[in-house]
């Protein structure tokens, strides 16, 4: 399911400033992510991509500005609402962030045990199904240390999918994966988006993934500490008014003033 402009944005930020300990590293972020859209957060190293992601999921409070999920404000002032929104959100961390003392099946079953009232056999059936979705159906009894990095990411994705979230966040999904595994993961992401209509937000600088998956992307610029442009990556690559973005997406070395 691709972006649908008739619906209100699934996630929206207004004049958002992000950073640590009240000190902004990036401000003026105004983005609206549509329901069912695959949206990339891109930019050079140290531009605050991961910080923006962590702010959107409430791990870091915003320095200023607001975040809305649908019509609801996402703010730590309302922890009940925040936790309700987060239950409808799945996050895949860089290394998978699996619990090492649990098998893959137990990892995926954990959120179901806590947040649903289903019986044990139903929970296990759902957990196995989620692992099957990421092609780990044969490894449900394995522990995280027994599987490869790519499998850990997929298992992390299965856990993120456990509660059938309507929004999925990915932090550098391709990092540390070989091109084939990375492509496989991209295909899984696309399939999830198309079959379940999940809104997907990805932090990445993997150009191939950006061009294959992204409906739109926001480019964050470390030099000006502001968002530079939001748009379709292919259009930005060829027609962006910012040379820096064209260089980034064409993998060229920037030679002139970065803010132009």
């Amino acid at each position: 399911m691709k972006s649908n402009s008739t619906l209100p944005p699934h996630i929206r930020t207004t004049e958002l400033a992000i950073g640590y300990s009240g000190k902004a590293i990036m401000d003026g972020i105004d983005i609206g992510i549509d329901t069912g859209e695959i949206f990339f957060i891109i930019g050079g190293s140290g531009s605050g991509k991961s910080t923006l992601l962590k702010t959107l999921i409430g791990l870091i409070p915003p320095v200023s500005g607001d975040i809305y999920y649908g019509e609801t404000e996402f703010s730590e002032d309302d922890p009940v609402e925040q936790s309700r929104i987060l239950r409808d959100t799945g996050v895949l961390y860089q290394g998978g962030a699996l619990f090492s003392s649990m098998t893959l099946r137990e990892n995926v079953a954990l959120p179901l045990r806590i947040h649903t009232k289903l019986s044990e056999s139903e929970i296990l059936a759902l957990a196995d199904y989620k692992l099957g979705l990421v092609e780990l159906g044969k490894a449900t009894q394995k522990y995280p240390h027994e599987i490869s990095g790519g499998m850990m990411k997929r298992a992390g994705l299965a856990r993120a999918l456990a509660l059938d979230p309507s929004i999925l966040f990915f932090d550098e999904p391709s990092a540390g994966l070989d091109p084939l595994t990375s492509r496989q993961l991209d295909e899984t992401i696309l399939e999830l988006n198309q079959s379940l209509g999940t809104t997907i937000i990805i932090v990445s600088h993997e150009l191939e993934s950006i061009f294959t998956l992204a409906d739109r992307a926001v480019f964050l610029d470390a030099a000006t500490r502001r968002q530079m442009e939001v748009g379709k990556p292919q259009t930005m690559k060829n027609e962006s008014s910012h040379e820096k973005i064209r260089d980034f997406l064409n993998r060229r070395k920037t030679t002139s003033n970065p803010s132009t």
Binding site: T103, D128, Y129, L131, L133, K138, A139, Q194, S195
Partner: peptide, 19 residues
């Protein structure tokens, strides 16, 4: 429409118990 695709993924689970 997507139900057939999703249903196709239910058969790949290994039912074996931990060794």
């Amino acid at each position: 429409g997507s139900i057939e695709t999703l249903l196709g993924r239910t058969d790949s689970t290994d039912e074996s118990t931990p060794s």
